[in-house]
Design a protein around this nucleic acid. Structure first.
Lengths: 395, 395
DNA sequence: CTGTTAGCGCCTTCAT
DNA sequence: ATGAAGGCGCTAACAG
């Protein structure tokens, strides 16, 4: 199958299961009418109390019908104030929470949102999710995490996406280059979808003006006097509406063209978005420079902060001084970027998550109105990895 | 090696600003008997096909009863091979997926696991989740992400945890310092719980021998000849079974004591686990050193790699050379640690997620057996931030 | 092996 | 403002 585990932590210790705890015996999910809790939920002081499993118990305690409990607890109108109080009290006292499954079965809404992301351990995704989560949980939605491995190809059945059917009220797709089949399956779910960073036709999205991103980064370097600027992160296999790298590259090219600065063919290797890609590409490029096959760039625009970090690392190993010998700009404003004193084009990432969540929630209201696409404006943050070129070629 | 993110090509379309897409109109979740999909799910070629909403349609198409469909699709025995094939075919053809809500309502199992974590954007949590997710989704479980803000205090109602009732089959609590109330509410859910990094009495856990962690780090430095070693990350508010920092500090103290190296009162500030905590604490400490109130340490053990990064950053600002003037050890083996050439005590983090997930799944089998606690063995990874002290005080 | 019969717990008309 | 009744889609006992 897919999903290999490349990043096995060195020392993948076989599960050394040592101690043995008694454990809660984990009784096979009894369906008995009442459960014992050690804490009185409604009262400030502890004590033994039976937790209600169903709405019926609450109704009984409050002296009303289940229907009224349902209405009262959900804040629907048509319930007298005193009744509502009694019901809420009873529910609190019993620690009652409506069964999401049962509620979903009748209403057709699950109160859950799927978040599609290849990993969460990469900062960008984690940050977007944090932002989205914040908004979604405040509105009472659960977040279901779906790992969509980077495999762009999707089989005819696209099982990953398919399993979302009837499971969520909406989908947040994070920088996921979905194959055609997956997209169609996704849309066939008939639930609102919002993408972040990638585009699906007629689906609302949170997008950054990536051409501008590329331009800002490049023009900053041009402004410092650089003429020989490389772009690390073009991607040959651009596809499926995921044009982040391509757009940034375009902005770079536009800026270079605008300044009349020629671009060498060896200056635009592809890297992906991770640290290693940056290291490898830069080392290779520099090898080519040393060999005389490629003119030496005095600055680098990296497609992401992580790629920039990789470049910094490689540059150090190669004995290059940053920013003395080489200026570096990244993109993202990664949480750890300041540790490298990394100049970067910021694209508020947590905000993207928040906005995407709001866009999605908008589509979940009774009267959605037209869905729109939100555009995020990037801005330059100048730190210490950029400086005028050491030579005297001032522009 | 590591999976690369999506690919892109280099053509960028000018990004029109804030477009407004028609959007899928997002009809209020119609409950009509059939839905249109643009793709034939079962057949290799596209075409219009009605997606079945219920098991009844599948039964009809396969010419069997709903019960048989249920059995066949779930791989239960007691279905003849040809029948099973017919059913599976029919289901595929209709793009049928059983409603999780309905299934949960009858079985009492939701096939979902809650992951409790304060954030996802911090590397440690993301990595653990990635590991857990990998195991859980392979076994058909959904992952529900619950943001539990670091607030240790929990109100009497502990609403955050409470809402998990009837929603998940198990809970994975990641380094969450749960308050007493929350713990009891959690246990009252009557579902298996596994913790990572923290301890709840009689609840299985994945734990690192953190005393050993502290010892390994400290003894490494002692072995290099350091005598004046600070520990950044003691935790004053240690509580709720979350003893990570305390245990590491204890290991540090034990090692120091074993070497007969005295510990100055100013050497053990608290930091939390994030970068900034490390920077601030180290700067403050160094201020005290400069003021003559605290003897200068020649090395630092940081409670986490992020704290170590903060120390490195602060040290650089203070003009200290690492490892010339100061050696630094972290803990975690953070994905980005190598960029800082950071010596660290590794605790395979993704593996912790995997193991926790397995432990949890073990508890979900019909006959759970005794729950056990898994212990992870840390090990030292020597990189470039540690070296013998510049002075000649060799041991 | 397969079909029939009951619910699971809740929400939602429709009455009252 | 409240109650009564039916059904959401599925699974789990029984029949056969």
């Amino acid at each position: 199958m897919s999903r290999t585990v490349p990043e096995l932590d060195e020392n993948a210790q076989p599960d050394s299961v040592s101690r043995t705890a008694p454990g809660p015996a984990s009784a096979p999910r009894e369906r008995t009418p009442g459960r014992e809790a050690t804490v009185a939920f409604g009262s400030p002081v502890g004590g033994r109390v039976v937790t209600a499993n169903t709405i019926v118990e609450v109704a009984a305690l409050a002296g009303v019908s289940p229907a009224t409990v349902s209405r009262a607890l959900r804040g629907l109108r048509g319930v007298s104030a005193p009744t509502r109080v009694r019901v809420i009290d009873a529910a609190a006292q019993l620690g009652y929470v409506a069964s999401p499954s049962a509620a979903a079965l009748t209403t057709g809404r699950t109160q859950a949102i799927a978040v599609l992301a290849p990993w969460v351990s990469r900062w960008f995704f984690g940050a977007v999710i944090d932002g989205a989560q914040e908004v979604l949980s405040r509105r009472g939605y659960d977040v279901l995490l779906y790992p969509l491995d980077g495999s762009v190809d999707d089989g005819p059945a696209a099982p990953g996406v398919r399993s979302l059917d009837k499971r969520v009220d909406g989908v947040l797709a994070l920088n996921v280059p979905l194959g055609l089949q997956s997209v169609q399956t996704l849309l066939a779910l008939r639930v609102p979808v919002v993408t972040v960073g990638s585009m699906i036709e007629s689906v609302p999205a949170v997008l950054v003006d990536n051409v501008l991103v590329g331009r800002l980064a490049t023009e900053h370097l041009l402004g410092l006097g650089h003429r020989c600027i490389a772009f690390l992160g073009s991607d040959p296999a651009e596809a499926f509406g995921f044009t982040v790298a391509g757009d940034r590259a375009a902005g770079y090219r536009a800026a270079m063209a605008g300044a009349g600065a020629p671009i060498d063919g060896g200056w635009c290797p592809s890297t992906g978005f991770a640290v290693e890609g940056g290291s490898i590409a830069f080392e290779r490029m520099w090898g080519s420079v040393v060999a005389g096959d490629t003119p030496a760039p005095s600055a680098v625009v990296a497609v992401s902060d992580e790629v920039a970090m990789g470049v910094l690392h490689a540059a150090r190993r190669l004995g290059l001084d940053v920013p003395g010998d080489l200026s570096v700009v990244g993109v993202d404003n990664h949480d750890l970027g300041y540790l490298f004193d990394l100049t970067t084009v910021a694209q508020p990432v947590r905000d993207q998550g928040r906005m995407a969540a709001r866009l999605l929630l908008d589509q979940l209201t009774p009267d959605p109105g037209p869905s729109h696409t939100a555009e995020i404006t990037p801005h330059l943050i100048v730190r210490g990895t950029t400086a005028p070129p050491s030579g005297r070629s001032t522009n």
